[in-house]
Design a protein around this nucleic acid. Structure first.
Length: 400
RNA sequence: GGGUAGGUUGAGCAGGUGGUGAGCUCCGCUGACUGUAGAUCAGCCGUCAUACGACUGUGGGGGUUCGAUUCCCUCCCUGCCCA
């Protein structure tokens, strides 16, 4: 059992390792509990993304029902609209959106990259134009922290400069990673809210030595948690694994939670947990749901496919979600074709339930000491949850 | 019954005033989506072909012509107006 830092009692966040990775090296998966004044989060855990102060298509009751204990908010988007100062005046992000469990706000660093065409970046900060109205804005580590303190997230994240896994030269990776380090230090210096945790981001791209260096630099700083950035992009599974195999061993004796930013495919998360990751976030389950794809133990289903128009079965027999409790695949298929709003809500509820329950299975397996077996089982089944695999054939889908 | 405007690929349209009509939007079919500018995007959507391409197609029939969606005759169908 370890707790984050010698002053844990006064820290805004405590991380307790409930079950450490076994000494036999069969897996680096571990069970943990993250505690803040607002509540606790069992890890490994998945955080649904609620960019615009909402997890698209769901309300807070839905979120609690699917089992979310922490969600992600976005500094960049909320700063632009409706404005962090307005949210602060209205009582903070939790009150504004009616969510009383944990919120982690992303720093806006990812948008610096995803909005690359609009960007001018230097050591001081990142300048970009709003995607909403074209107005010019400048993010600095200090502003990102100030915005996140205004929003009142339970966990803030230091501004970083992510590097796309591919299409980047080593010098670019090195430059962005070093800048991320300087920004990390400035973020810590700018952070003032004692009731808010702050996570730092490890970069380094796919360069092993840069990853290692970034891990050492960020881990040496007094963050409450460590994010692993720059993955969950267009890297191969092998490259992602290699990066984690560089980062996590260097954190072996570090008691803080490890958060792999952006990963959301169940099997991808399983593999990352296997390599020692505790937290994840991704738009993937919610986005694919809105676009008609739902995840099941048997594989992926695209509810827009004609095969489901006469399928009376629920998305997944035995699933506890509200979609599976009350409706057939045929009904969902109809709702998607009719562009009915209920389709998005039900499909999102299902995929988030599936994802969060999947993480629950992972936690139970770790607690039971059977996680390596779960990994073997899932690898063997290679279900359609994996975006790269297709599990359900049309004939199966159309079975009566 | 008379007049008038029309019948174009599932639907709705564009186009074409004698010289090769497969163009658009829906619908439909399939795929993609991983720190959300995404209830979005991409491909296909007459027939055959993996593809290159080939063929067919402008309501039906007939005529004129080297050649007809276009000109002529006739029939059918639809909207509107008048009886």
């Amino acid at each position: 059992m370890a707790t984050a830092g010698p002053t844990a009692a006064t820290r805004p966040l405590a991380y307790e390792i409930i079950a450490a990775a076994p000494a036999d090296g069969s897996t680096r998966a571990r069970l943990g509990r993250l505690t803040t004044a607002r509540g606790t989060v069992e890890t490994p855990q998945f955080m649904p993304v609620g960019t615009n102060a909402t997890v698209k298509a769901l309300d807070p009751d839905d979120l609690r029902e699917v089992g979310a204990s922490i969600i992600l908010g976005n500094t960049y988007h909320l700063y632009l609209r409706p404005g962090h100062e307005r949210i602060a005046r209205l009582g903070g992000l939790h009150r504004f959106m009616g969510w009383d469990r944990l919120i982690l706000t992303d720093s806006g660093g990812f948008q610096v990259v995803s909005l690359a065409e609009l960007r001018a970046i230097d050591d001081e900060g990142a300048t970009f134009r709003s995607h909403l109205d074209g107005s010019t804005h400048r993010f600095t580590p200090e502003l990102s922290i100030a915005v996140q303190e205004s929003l009142g997230a339970d966990i803030a994240v230091a501004l970083d400069q992510p590097v796309p896994p591919h299409s980047s030269r080593r010098e670019q990776v090195a430059e962005a990673t070093e800048r991320t380090h300087r920004w990390a230090a400035r973020s810590l210096a700018a952070h003032t809210r004692a009731d808010q945790a702050l996570f730092g981001i490890i970069q380094g791209g796919l360069e092993a030595d840069l990853r290692a260096e970034s891990t050492r630099v960020i881990a040496a700083m007094p963050f409450d948690g460590l994010c692993i950035g720059g993955l969950a992009g267009d890297e191969t599974p092998e490259q992602r694994t290699a990066a984690l195999d560089v980062v996590v061993p260097l954190l072996a004796d570090d008691p803080r939670p490890r958060y792999l930013m952006g990963l959301g495919s169940p099997l991808d998360m399983l593999e990352a947990v296997h390599r020692g990751v505790d937290l994840f976030d991704s738009v993937l389950p919610a986005r694919v749901a809105r676009n008609g794809t739902v995840w099941t133990e048997e594989g992926r289903l695209n509810l827009r496919n004609a095969a489901f128009l006469d399928d009376p079965r629920p998305i997944e027999a035995g699933c506890r979600c509200r979609a599976c409790r009350g409706f057939s695949r045929a009904y969902l298929a109809h709702l998607f074709r009719a562009d009915e709003l209920l389709a998005y809500r039900l499909a999102t509820c299902h995929n988030l339930t599936f994802t969060l329950d999947f993480m629950g299975r992972i936690r139970h397996a770790i607690a039971a000491g059977t996680f390596p077996e779960l990994v073997r089982e899932m690898r063997a089944r290679r279900t359609l949850m994996d975006p790269t695999e297709r599990l359900v054939s049309d004939s199966q889908a159309g079975a009566k």
